[in-house]
Design a protein around this nucleic acid. Structure first.
Lengths: 342, 342
DNA sequence: ACCCAATATGCAATCGGTTGCAGTTAGATT
DNA sequence: AATCTAACTGCAACCGATTGCATATTGGGT
């Protein structure tokens, strides 16, 4: 098997004694090419194993049909659900997807933004890294009017289009529910509050305490990087407290599961001694014993919505106003927080 | 903020009264360009906001510095660990990564292979979909001598380069361990045995039974698609058996966790009544109670190895022989299978 | 037989870089 | 002062497809 020549429209043109223009138009199903000729072109192209050259095409047409996607990480239940949603929509509209993960680092995010720019993506979907504070690295996109939409993790304000859930309300409902169950000392483990998804949930939690007449204790809020190790550390600190909390709201199901198990191993009963609510409705939440109460996060839907919005914006003739699309989330009550009684 | 002009080397050339060739060479740090001129070029490029056009560059240089990666799905602990490994190596060597997920369907896999071809990837890394039986859709890669390496899920034979673990041995060890623990009726839940990762584990399991003098009971082997639903179905069938199994080897940690929980809820003790071993060493395996014995799968390492091998192959002057790289895996014994006693 | 319109095809410029080869220039050598 | 060499820089072709405009062909109408 020898190296096979890469076929171009020029090769087809020569073989059929036609001009490259006609071949090009024929392959595009252009109306100005005779049906018989077209058929001949298609057949010959297949026969010779022709594949179009994306670069030549993109170079000329100044459009790449590629959407860049930058997410904090790939190995997250929520993120992969979202990617599946994005992919479904994009693929259905003939777009490709260039994915990369920032690993929660602004530095890598910036690097990838540049790569995306070089690859001349037609649009960009971003979920910001944990420590991203500035959007400077996205300036080129703004300058060149390349649509940039935020999915889930955006930045405060109405300047940009983003698809989110009402994190304040979700946090509020989680904490309110725990309070309803009789919890009076509710601890909260959250991610980096630079990201408003986390700060808003915390604010919601705080408001719920207030509305239920519970005092807010700063020392019960733990800001972490939501890894297994830091969760363990937090749990150890909690277990050493003089008065243990009787409720725990964790901004992530995996960490909630780790916490749940640690507390059980320390001899505490869930939910009798400590009731727990997680976040995301990961597969993990159904594995724990007792099953974990959590907030359902419509990952796939979020991906579909943001992708569809982007496609619309690309097809629109006039520039569209930035808007914030808020999806529904809901508290799912399972055994880890259900104490019985009303 | 108005639409900013896209700067090309021609714009820089004009501004500096130099020729585009010199700009091009200067930006490439070519030796034949005066250091002073070079500096001037770089400064002006920055100042004007120049970004190179990947397409023009790729079109001319006939090299894309992009590697395609096709995996069955993104939302798997193992796969994302592997992707992280691949990304680390590729990025360190200046390559980009075009990812797509086949969703376990040969049809989608073929479609993406074509897209990768159009995007002229320099090489391809593939973990085959569950139902892929033919490699016809990769023919263009073979014909054009574009390296195609398999990661984890390849195809039998020595025709292609692949990075794998010894699945037969892993399956053998898992089943052997269960037998050692005193299990005599060991059930096995596996994925689509078209994929040799699954068939080899099953073969290893079978061989271990044989070596331990246990009879092989076909009705204890369940081939599934390894989803939550089918696992539940299998568990229900198992629970209805006249004689229950006393050991369970599942080719996937999440399904093992589902199984574990279902059995416990049915009143069975783990590991006393049924000992369980999973596969992959997912995060999930540490969440279950008791913690799940499993086979550690070096996902990140596998990604690094396959990417490094691909890069070497791309840099090599002469074509490299196909080879099979086997990584170490190991049984991790936790409480779900440890009955005590020797 | 002549003209016109409709249909089909080709020419050549263009997208933005890259690179082999040739040409220029300044300084060194004799 | 003439010659040579090394260091720079530019010309122009090229990568493979797209597309506005021009041209060729065909058939129909009168």
């Amino acid at each position: 098997m020898s190296q096979e020549k890469i076929i171009t429209i020029y090769d087809i043109a020569e073989k059929l004694s036609l001009s490259p223009s006609t071949i090009s138009r024929g392959l595009q199903n252009h109306a100005a090419v005779n049906a018989v000729t077209k058929k001949k072109i298609f057949d010959t192209a297949n026969e010779m194993g022709y594949r179009f050259n994306t670069f030549a095409r993109n170079l000329r047409s100044r459009k790449t049909n590629t959407i860049g996607v930058i997410v904090p990480r790939l190995n997250s239940y929520f993120i992969s659900a979202m990617l599946a949603g994005i992919e479904k929509e994009l693929n259905g509209s003939g777009y490709n997807m260039l994915i990369s993960q920032s690993l929660e680092l602004q530095e890598k995010e910036a690097e990838y933004a540049e790569t995306m720019m070089h690859n001349r993506v037609d649009g960009l979907i971003v979920a910001l890294a944990a420590n991203t504070t500035s959007l400077d690295h996205f300036q080129p996109f703004f300058k060149h009017h390349i649509p940039l939409l935020f999915a889930d993790r955006g930045i405060a304000g109405n300047e940009y289009t983003k698809v989110v859930i009402d994190n304040f309300r979700a946090g509020y409902e989680a904490a309110f529910h725990l309070a309803e169950q009789g919890c009076t000392r509710i601890a909260h483990i959250t991610g980096n509050t630079i990201r408003d998804v986390y700060s808003e949930r915390r604010d919601g939690y705080q408001q719920a305490l207030k509305d239920k007449g519970l005092s807010f204790d700063e020392s019960l809020v733990f800001e972490t990087d939501l890894t297994e190790i830091s969760t363990m550390k937090v749990m150890n600190r909690i277990l050493k407290m003089e008065v243990l909390p009787d409720g725990l709201f964790v901004s992530n199901d995996f960490c909630a599961a780790i916490g749940l198990k640690t507390l059980k191993q320390a001899g505490l009963r869930i939910p009798e001694d400590i009731a727990i609510v997680g976040f995301n409705n990961d597969a993990t939440s159904r594995i724990t014993e007792p099953a974990l109460s959590t907030v359902n996060y419509p990952g796939q839907e979020m991906g579909e919505v943001v992708a569809r919005r982007l496609i619309n914006q690309l097809n629109a003739s006039n520039p569209s106003e930035p808007e914030t699309l808020v999806l529904k989330s809901e508290l799912i009550v399972r055994s880890s927080s259900l104490k019985g009684g009303v």
